[in-house]
Design a protein around this nucleic acid. Structure first.
Lengths: 188, 188
DNA sequence: TTGACATGTTCACGATCCTTAACGAGGCGA
DNA sequence: TCGCCTCGTTAAGGATCGTGAACATGTCAA
């Protein structure tokens, strides 16, 4: 750990995931929190060990309590993004189901067909509810943020993650975005 | 708040309560935590706003998680020590009741320093409320009637019974009788 | 392309943390 | 009483935080 200020807390990861899940830029969060964007950047980069007061101000800008912030346990790494050709075909009949991540999921799945207007945005997502979810982009372009990972997916690309991880979806580009998604347990 | 580093978090009170609850001195906690006793002292005094890493090290020495630490809601400040002249008089006539603590709202225990003039008598007590009470005679002689039992107590003697039982106190002998009593819940 | 804007990063510097090393108060046995 | 220990507090100074101001990159519209 050459340059890092390692507290063994994943402060940076935690904060970045939290911020992105709420659709905030570093400067936006900094403004709400009353600190500077440099502070956010350095904390997220793990290059500084903030004071409790500073961290509280930052979290008040989200807002999230210190207790909840530290209660959030970042999940162990797992494959999140799958290229189009990585999907496994499990289609039956005349419909082709191409499953994300092989047999990672259990059986209590609800599958949705979603359509995003250009620029549509899920905004913030609940920080922690049990379950898993995933989806496949059919057409258009979808920006997916999961934890501190962000990627723009195109037709055929897919995502899959644990619902406890903060996440966010946003359609980018000029056309509608169509996604087939699934989650468990079913969430009307 | 002249000199204080006030984060609105009661960091100092939290930490002190936690440390004392674990029977640790500042130096003992500091040693286990790998920080210096000065750090503990300054944090508890509210004269410094520790870094998250430092606070984590301190809490690891307890040990308590950051989440639990911040979830812990410190009780509203309440007076703990009372000088003799600070006890609030709630008696009248020939019996003096001097209560520990002025406002018992939200408390479960009422403690009284009682002084009976010679021959003073409580009469028959209301027998409705639940709870327990008891006391120790400090000086003089006290005739205690509980239910159908009656006894005269001298210095060092004590009593304890269920408040629902009819009871009565009467000072006997030539001198004042002093009793320290307690009951739960408070009876006003 | 160009400009305008937003994003995240980096750097110099004043403010603050955290340590080292003291101090005063209080308890206990000789 | 003395000596010795432990307690919590305080002062001085090097290390680090957090800021203000740049920088580099990417996106979008014209």
């Amino acid at each position: 750990m050459s340059n890092d200020t390692d507290t063994g807390l994943d402060l940076g990861r935690r904060l970045r995931a939290l911020r992105l899940a709420h659709g905030l830029s570093q400067r936006a969060l900094a403004k709400q929190a009353g600190v500077t964007n440099a502070t956010i950047s350095l904390i997220e980069a793990g290059r500084m060990n903030p004071s409790v007061g500073a961290l509280k101000r930052v979290l008040d800008g989200v807002p999230v309590s210190l207790s909840d912030f530290f209660a959030f346990e970042p999940k162990p790494e797992r494959q999140v993004f799958f290229a189009a050709e990585e999907l496994t075909e499990i289609g039956k009949g005349r419909i082709s189901y191409r499953q994300v991540g092989g047999n990672l999921f259990g059986r209590r799945l609800q599958i949705l067909h979603e359509r995003y207007a250009p620029g549509a945005d899920t905004g913030r997502a609940p920080l922690s509810h049990d379950g898993e979810e995933g989806g496949i982009v059919i057409s258009g372009r979808l920006e997916v943020t999961v934890g501190d990972e962000r990627k723009i997916l195109g037709p055929g690309d897919a995502y899959a993650f644990d619902s406890a991880t903060p996440h966010r979806f946003r359609a980018v580009g000029p056309q509608d975005c169509i996604v087939v998604s699934a989650c468990t347990p079913p969430s009307f």
